[in-house]
């Protein structure tokens, strides 16, 4: 029996729609990039035309999306193994890995050139470095080779507010570096909490997360240590050009809650965690999202109050 096909390029049932290509850009990560870059731009002491500001944030977001697509291209093998990621467009068969590579490279080039033209060359170069750092340094090198993957790789996610600042001012000062440091120190406890309750996922995929290489007890200790370090940094930032009474109040409340959660994680053992399906770890993970959102909202409020003589310490 023979089966003749007139067109060998017949699309399969799972052909991707527009939404699948959009999912390739990791929209949830992109929303964090948009928000923090926006705060960085608004907190900067420079007047930016609203359309230039909008375009700058948009192209920083597109650059973040390009990084996401390139990451999905490179990590398709890992994503296919992990429960959390196996429905992503490439492992689910909707989009070819090569398409993701092409889309990622095209968007990376467009975003860097357009950010340069919309704002300044330093912001464009900074965005190019960020994409390189996330794709090459984190995804290709660190992620599969060291348990410090999330610590060093977290820098990529921490750059957007600093890029927003540079887009507005063309220079780097201590304030954008503080915003960078906030996200940089926040990232490890955020992802380690996720690694604790995703249990075997990273193990199955062969990703050397701290939970896999040094054990879950060590991970709990590390979460507490980084949370304490983050509290010092967060409260210290209250007395910088970013801070003010609103920021200080938010920082005190959020750090007390976050430290409380970290201590609870530190005191628990695996038996207790499994008994309630990692309820404390899951709550800590959700709280970490609120923690970052609250801090950057407070920085934004301080910046918005400044023209009325209310923001900052006077």
């Amino acid at each position: 029996m023979s089966d003749i096909s007139y067109n060998t390029n017949v699309p399969h049932e799972d052909e991707a729609g527009f939404g699948d290509y959009f999912a390739l850009l990791k929209p949830r990560v992109m929303s964090l990039v948009v928000f923090t870059a926006f705060v960085g731009l608004m907190a900067a002491p420079a007047a930016v035309h609203p359309l230039v500001g909008f375009a700058s944030i948009l192209f920083i977001a597109v650059g973040g999306g390009a990084s996401g697509a390139l990451n999905m291209w490179w990590d398709a093998d890992i994503d296919a193994v992990m429960r959390r990621t196996r429905n992503r467009p490439i492992p689910s068969g909707k989009i070819e890995a090569g398409e993701a590579l092409g889309l990622g490279l095209a968007l990376a080039a467009i975003s860097v050139v357009m950010l340069w033209l919309a704002s300044n060359v330093y912001a464009g170069a900074f965005l190019a470095f960020t994409i390189f750092f996330y794709v090459v340094i984190y995804s290709m090198w660190l992620k599969r080779s060291t348990p410090h993957n999330i610590v060093i790789g977290g820098a990529a996610g921490a750059f957007p507010p600093a890029i927003g600042w540079v887009a507005a001012t063309g220079s780097l000062t201590v304030e954008p570096l503080l915003m960078f440091a906030l996200i940089f120190i926040w990232t490890p406890p955020h992802f380690w909490a996720l690694a604790l309750f995703m249990r075997s996922d990273y193990d199955d995929a062969g990703v050397p997360m701290l939970t896999v290489t040094h054990g879950r007890r060590t991970t709990r200790v590390h979460i507490l240590a980084y949370t304490a370090l983050l509290a010092i940094l967060s409260l210290g930032a209250a007395f910088s050009g970013l801070g003010g009474p609103v920021y200080l109040a938010v920082a005190v409340v959020m750090n007390l809650l976050f430290l409380h959660g970290a201590v609870k994680i530190w005191r628990r053992d695996e038996v207790a965690s499994e008994a309630d399906d990692f309820a404390v770890e899951r709550r800590f993970f959700k709280l970490s999202l609120l923690y970052l959102f609250a801090h950057f909202s407070a920085i934004l409020i301080e910046a918005l109050l400044k023209p009325y003589g209310l923001g900052g310490w006077g």
């Binding site: 699309p11 049932e13 052909e15 729609g17 527009f18």
Partner: peptide
């Protein structure tokens, strides 16, 4: 077919 719908959303989106 659903396939056409998905192609249509893609084309409209890119446009």
């Amino acid at each position: 077919h659903d396939l056409h719908r998905r192609r249509f959303t893609r084309n409209v989106g890119v446009g």
